[in-house]
C-alpha cells in the first residue's frame, strides 16, 4: 500500500491536537475543507497517488520555491506520518 509503518502512532490526545492543527493551521492555505487554496488540495483523491515519503518530507521540511513551510519545529516524524496517512484516507472533521 505504500503506507509507511508507524514507529509510534500518536496517542488519542495528540491525534485530537493534530486533527485541529491540520484543519485550522494547514487550512489557512489549503482550505478548511482541505480542498485547496493558495496551497494545493489535500483531499484523499488529490493525494492518493503521491508517494507518502515525499508528502511527509514536504510536511516536515517544506517545499523550496513554493510557499509551503517546513513544520518540523512543531511536528515529529510520527506526527507527519500520521497526518499524511490520515489525509490519504480522507481527513476526519
Amino acid at each position: 500500500m505504500g503506507t509507511p509503518a508507524l514507529a509510534a502512532a500518536p496517542g488519542p490526545d495528540r491525534v485530537k491536537e493534530l486533527t485541529h492543527f491540520v484543519r485550522q493551521e494547514c487550512g489557512f492555505c489549503h482550505g478548511l475543507q482541505l480542498t485547496g487554496g493558495l496551497g494545493s488540495s489535500l483531499t484523499s483523491a488529490a493525494l492518493r497517488d503521491k508517494p507518502s515519503e515525499a508528502l511527509i518530507a514536504a510536511t516536515l521540511y517544506g517545499l523550496p520555491g513554493t510557499a509551503m513551510p517546513g513544520w518540523a519545529p512543531f511536528l515529529s516524524v510520527d506526527d507527519a506520518t500520521w497526518i499524511v496517512n490520515t489525509l490519504k484516507k480522507g481527513f476526519p472533521q
Binding site: F28, L38, P69
Partner: peptide, 9 residues
Amino acid sequence: DPKLPVYKM
C-alpha cells in the same frame, strides 16, 4: 532567509 519559514501569509 530560507530558514525562516512563513507559517501564515
